[in-house]
Every structure is written in structure tokens, then in C-alpha cells.
Design a protein around this nucleic acid. Structure first.
Lengths: 135, 135
DNA sequence: TAATCCTTGCAATCCGATTGCAAAGTTTCA
DNA sequence: TGAAACTTTGCAATCGGATTGCAAGGATTA
């Protein structure tokens, strides 16, 4: 069994050809990637299949979505063991110049006060600005 | 000059009939509201005009958009004097049950470390969970 | 091997958002 | 005041991302 197959099976996802290709691409990404960007790398693949593959990955928490404020949903692999729960808060940095979205894994999210009787389940924190290259 | 006209003119927006209606509705909202929700309140209005009205308001910083993670952009009036700059960070709370998005004006956003040579221009912080009514 | 289930690909569709264009309304200035 | 210039509005059409239905192909199980 290859490493890629392993990644899928750890999340109880059947390793089909398409899925292996997609997870391979995702592993290569340094930044969060949109469906469109992914699709461009699979010229022969059907868009619907790609959507469904991503949906499957989402359901099995292999990836998570990021809302960087551009209106385009982006995807990134979850850290191993990530359950996408509040305790594992995702911080991202979106560069307004190059449009790349970085995952800031080592950034701590401080405690935030919420109104009484509100129950917190998750946090989406997106920083916007210029990255080191575009500065 | 009415109060509504005043609101518009403070932002250098010509007070047309449509704009007055829209800003009136926005003032009435306790929560961030989507284009669709707004459109439902103006049965006779053209969707395009509403889009353009909102675009005008955005350009003149009378309103700002909120990305609550639902994929639907929502709008809310800026605080008076708000320039939508990092110093005026918007925090919002999105209820996964009733789908309402609250503006948390009195919530302080703590300092966040960003990588070297990254320049911060804005922050989008969305808390997700259950509001007091849906708890 | 037959029955079943899951995955894939195609076509069609949905819906939010945008664009082009012409009509209506407003402003400007001689 | 009235003609020219500009802005706003409404309609029709279009775009593009995302979803759905359905049938074919492939894998799984008994």
C-alpha cells in the first residue's frame, strides 16, 4: 500500500484513482487551493467528479475549507489528527496582491469573549494584507 | 433634510429614492443581511439596482461585507467614522442554527502574531456556534 | 456468476452576480 | 429657460461556480 492510499484509508476513504490523484496534488500545495485551480491541473477530469471528491474529503475531514474573503472557497489538507473542532482553530493569511492563502499553523488564537449564553463551536480567522514576497 | 439623507450625504452618496429605501432597511436590521434577504423586502425592486446600490454603499464605506462562512455574503452598516481599516476590526458571530450573523461590536480582537515581513491590512474574525436563542 | 453498491462522466439546471444598453431622471451652465 | 452632459434605473442577456439526475462503468459481496 502506498503512502497516498494510507492517507485516504486513515480517514476511511476508499482509494480510487481519482482520489489518489487529488490527494497527491493537495499534498504538493503549499497554500490553500481553490476548486478552479485544482481543476486546471486535471485537464481531463470532470468538474463534477472533482467537486464530489472534495466533498467526500470534507465529509471525512481529510481537508477543510477556507474562507479568505475573496468569495472563492479554498481547500487545504487538515493536519493529521485534526477534527476541525474549535480547539483546532485555523488561522489563514490572505495576500491581497498575489491572492495566495497561507495556513498559519503556528499562530495562536487568543481567547475571545463571546456574549452570554452563546456557545462557541468554531472560529474562522483570516488575516489580510501583503505576504513577504509582495511586500 | 431627513436623517436618512444625512446618512448618505455624510458618505458623499447622492440620496436617490432607492438608496434611501435601502439604507432605511439596513438601519432597521439587527443582524447582517444578505442581498437575497434584502431583495425579498423590496418585491418591486430590480435585483441589479439593489446590487449596484450595495456596491455604491461599499465603495463609499457606508456598509461592509461579512463573510460568515455560509458562502453567502452579508452586509451591515459601518459604525459612524468607520473606515474599514485594521484598527477597526469586525468580529461576527454566526449561528449555525438560525443562520443569523451578529455584529459583536464590543468584542476586542487581541493581538496576533504574523510571520516576518507580512504586512497586516485587515482581519476577518467569524465565530461560529449557537446564539442565545438557539442554545 | 448474479446482485448490489459505489464511483464516475455527461447533460442539464440552478442561482448569485455581472454586463450592455436604452430610458428616465438629475445637474450644469450658457 | 433649455440644451448638453452625466447619473441612475430597469430590463434582458450572460457568466461562472456549484448542484442534480441519470446512466454507464467498476468494485464488492454472497
Amino acid at each position: 500500500m502506498t503512502e497516498l492510499e494510507n492517507v485516504l484509508q486513515q480517514r476511511n476513504i476508499k482509494p480510487t484513482a481519482m482520489r489518489l490523484l487529488v490527494v497527491e496534488k493537495l499534498l504538493q500545495q503549499k497554500y490553500a487551493i481553490s476548486h478552479k485551480e485544482l481543476a486546471e491541473q486535471f485537464e481531463n477530469a470532470d468538474n463534477v467528479t472533482l467537486f464530489r471528491t472534495l466533498k467526500t474529503f470534507l465529509e471525512h475531514k481529510l481537508i477543510h475549507t477556507i474562507d479568505d474573503g475573496t468569495g472563492v472557497v479554498k481547500y487545504a489538507l487538515c493536519q493529521s489528527g485534526c477534527n476541525c473542532k474549535p480547539s483546532e482553530q485555523h488561522t489563514h493569511f490572505h495576500c491581497s496582491q498575489c491572492q495566495r492563502t497561507f495556513c498559519l499553523t503556528d499562530t495562536e488564537i487568543p481567547n475571545i469573549n463571546i456574549p452570554q449564553n452563546f456557545k462557541l463551536e468554531g472560529i474562522n480567522l483570516v488575516l489580510k494584507g501583503r505576504c513577504d514576497r509582495c511586500n
